[in-house]
Each structure stands twice: as structure tokens, then as C-alpha cells.
């Protein structure tokens, strides 16, 4: 029997959040954390609330804090997460809880919106696509794969303290994705918006973001590239 402890909070009935204990029989199989949640919801308590959709690590909706580490419940196997037969599941840290494991992602999206995550190019559109060389295209690898699950930003202490001013690893990874794109011509405007003490420079290189990203991306490296671009722009 697996000991599962789940963060519960219903704003309509509870004055305070609390942890609820469950015993789950996984039949000795190494299932994913999401399967355990589904089993609890189906067999023990149908009010346990969480987000999930694709259940294969593509939609980014079931980012949770699993035994202290942020990750996607659907692609985190018990063998990786469970310590001493115990599984503790909490919502992503740092964001307001709406109910149980569901957080309000508003602040996270606001920061994403700030970096204008879309291609900007004022030159006349050619008759065909704007072409890129294979080398130019390669620069976007490790950037475009982000699924906006928020595992990184909600594991970053700098984002916990200043989620309204620090863009956070996810937003900055996307900022760099467009700074690095050969087809984007708004580089200068983008950089000008980032050169304040909070947006980029609140990153202290703690690398929690790299540690948790379920897609294996490296926001810290992207942040370093942005910093270098700001540096050469000023020099």
C-alpha cells in the first residue's frame, strides 16, 4: 500500500488548507503519479481536484509539486518520485491556490505576455515563407519546445518573491526564443524592455529551473544569452 498525502483546499468550505492521507494499492506496478491521482479520484474521493489533459507530457497542465520537486504528474513514474513508500503531492508553489492542486496561473501568463511571444517583422512579407538556413533554425532548438507548464518558474525563489516584476525562467526562455530568431526584427525593442533590475537580472543563477524542467530545457543558459546580448548592446 502506497501512502499518499494530498494537499486539499476548498475555498467554499475550508478556512485553511490541509493534507489528506490516502492508501493506494498500485498492484506493485510502477505507474505514473497521475495514475495514482486518477485512482484516488475514481475509487476513494471524487472531489480531489487537479488539472490534466493529454496525460503524456505535452499539454503541460498537470505540473505539480511531487515529493518536494516540481514535475508533470503524467510522466513522473513512482519509482522516480516515491521515497520510503510515501508520496506527497502539493500544488505548484508560489501561485495562489484556487482549489486543491489547481493554481491560478494568471501571474505566470502575465509575465509570458510581457515578452511578446510572437514573431515581429516589419519588412514587407515575401511571396513565400521567410526562409531560415539550417544553422539559423538550429538556434531555436532547446527554446521552442517549452510547453508552459510553469514547473520552472514556480520552483524559482526569485519568482516566488517577485512574480509581478521578475519575468521568470519560462518567460525568459521564450524571450530568448524570439531574440534568437533570425526572422524577428524587434531585437532592439525587446532588449530595451528587459534592461531593468527585475525583468532579467533578478535571476541569480540558482538553476532550480534547469533541475525541474520536464522537457529537459535550460532556461538559465537562455538567460545568460540575454544578459550577453544586453551587455554587447550597451558596450
Amino acid at each position: 500500500m502506497l501512502q499518499v498525502s494530498i494537499y486539499r483546499f476548498n475555498p467554499e468550505t475550508d478556512a485553511e488548507p490541509g493534507m489528506q492521507e490516502f492508501q493506494v494499492d498500485t498492484g506493485g506496478k510502477d505507474v505514473m503519479v497521475l495514475d495514482v491521482l486518477e485512482q484516488i479520484k475514481a475509487e476513494q474521493d471524487s472531489t480531489v481536484t487537479y488539472r490534466r489533459s493529454c496525460r503524456e507530457g505535452v499539454c503541460g497542465s498537470d505540473g505539480l509539486n511531487i515529493n518536494g520537486k516540481n514535475g508533470l504528474a503524467c510522466i513522473t513514474p513512482l519509482s522516480e518520485a516515491v521515497r520510503g513508500n510515501k508520496l506527497v503531492i502539493r500544488p505548484l508553489p508560489g501561485l495562489p491556490v484556487i482549489r486543491d492542486l489547481v493554481v491560478d496561473m494568471g501571474l505566470f501568463y502575465q509575465q509570458y505576455e510581457k515578452v511578446q511571444p510572437f514573431l515581429q517583422n516589419n519588412t514587407p512579407a515575401p511571396a513565400i515563407e521567410r526562409l531560415q538556413s539550417p544553422e539559423e533554425r538550429e538556434k531555436l532548438d532547446g527554446l521552442y519546445e517549452c510547453i508552459l507548464c510553469a514547473c520552472c518558474s514556480t520552483s524559482c525563489p526569485s519568482f516566488w518573491w517577485n512574480p509581478d516584476r521578475f519575468i521568470g525562467p519560462a518567460g525568459l526562455l521564450q524571450a530568448y526564443r524570439f531574440l534568437a530568431d533570425s526572422r524577428d526584427t524587434a531585437t532592439e525593442e525587446r532588449l530595451a524592455k528587459l534592461d531593468d533590475p527585475f525583468s532579467v537580472f533578478r535571476c541569480h543563477g540558482i538553476q532550480n529551473c534547469v533541475n525541474v524542467c520536464p522537457k529537459g530545457l535550460n532556461p538559465t543558459r537562455a538567460i545568460g544569452h540575454i544578459r550577453n546580448m544586453l551587455l554587447s548592446r550597451a558596450a
Binding site: 528587459l194 534592461d195 531593468d196 533590475p197 527585475f198 525583468s199 532579467v200
Partner: peptide
Amino acid sequence: MVTAVTSLGRSG
């Protein structure tokens, strides 16, 4: 752009 008047150099 986030403004911060009390930082030393103003720019990050």
C-alpha cells in the same frame, strides 16, 4: 520594463 528608482544604477 519595471521601474526601480532606488537601485544604484537604475539599469539592471
